[in-house]
Design a protein around this nucleic acid. Sequence first.
DNA 1: CAGTGGTCTAGACCACTGA
DNA 2: CAGTGGTCTAGACCACTGA
Lengths: 232, 232
Amino acid sequence: MALHDRIRTEIEGQILSGTLQPGDKVPSELELMAHYGCSRMTVSKALTALSGAGLLQRRKRAGTVVAPRPTETMVLDVPDLAVEIARRGQAYRFQLIGRDIRPPRPEDELDEGLARAGLLLFVRGVHSADDEPIAYEERFISLTAVPEITEADFSVESPGSWLLRHIPWTEAENRIGAVGAHPDWAARLNIAPGTACLSIERKTWRGDERITLVRQKFVAGSFELVARFGAA
Amino acid sequence: MALHDRIRTEIEGQILSGTLQPGDKVPSELELMAHYGCSRMTVSKALTALSGAGLLQRRKRAGTVVAPRPTETMVLDVPDLAVEIARRGQAYRFQLIGRDIRPPRPEDELDEGLARAGLLLFVRGVHSADDEPIAYEERFISLTAVPEITEADFSVESPGSWLLRHIPWTEAENRIGAVGAHPDWAARLNIAPGTACLSIERKTWRGDERITLVRQKFVAGSFELVARFGAA
DNA sequence: CAGTGGTCTAGACCACTGA
DNA sequence: CAGTGGTCTAGACCACTGA
């Protein structure tokens, strides 16, 4: 283990164990140099890493203190559905229901970014695993941002997988909730209207440019999101 | 902007724009030193940061290459419910339904870590906003890990807020899905059995020690999780 | 204005590993 | 075995900012 890793780990341990409380002052770089008998670059590397992880706050002249509270942010796995289903050992299929090129409409309830994007590709379809439908999807794609998608064949590949391969997003926002199945698409999933479904709405960007908005409804029990935080 | 930041940003830009494709070789540290006219520590700082962010993979002798695909991990905000509701300007309340100290039972469907933890505090209750119930919660807390929680007053503060204040977790795992309301608790939420609910199961650890398992059911529409990725 | 962190240099030795 | 990254040193100059 490198020395800078050892320094980082020891200070991290004192924070997690509560020996160092939020607001407590951490020794200055000079003091840590003396304590560990190393150069300033080495302690700086450890402290910079802890600061980047949100455990420390550093201010010139004032020194380094333990950050108020570890931010409760988590890592959420949002896998490509096709990949995830294949990983379960099931046969993935995307069944296209409809595909239109048209301007945005008020009832689409789009965000500003897409509503102003000009022509959209509107795609609807069903994701299935071993021929069992598990999710209904409605997707809007900005043709300004992705003109070449008009050539894509969605009987071979889902729109999501196609986009991931051709123009991976750099920013995304997901909204996750629950919803009773709507009559318009309940039949597509072989469920009764009102049945509980997991609802995911995802917006993606590439830099400043809006790419796509997708709304997916998963049959309850068919799909779970997992979010982990920490060393695991 | 520091030089190492500029180097990092330029390489990052080439990856995000597609100029550098996954698998492509990035110039070696020596080449970058010559290109930017700086020392090796400076280019190393930039490359180490990009490697830590998952955009580059570095191997000795083989050099540095663009990573296969930016990992699709997202930052998920999992706020304290009390804080979140207060932020909306609503009055938060936790109504305790039951509180027992007992050993684990098979029907609890606990994970190994808690099932072996010895005595548990089992708490049930309802979270409400402006006296409207929005979530039902069942929680198991390891008394081995948190003996002092027997003194807590859950008419003042929810078990979740109490735990956050007293022994914040260091690791957590969330499972997020949808479920139809069960007759046992549907009435607590003033909804009909079978109504769609968002289901969150969260396990937390403090270091190696299992702390709590909580299962929450949110009335559809009352609560959304938001996950963001990228610069936003 | 003195202490702190932010950044950078010009070296060094080493471990790894693929040509 | 030669090129690469991983780590570290002993300095340096600077910007910031709170005592």
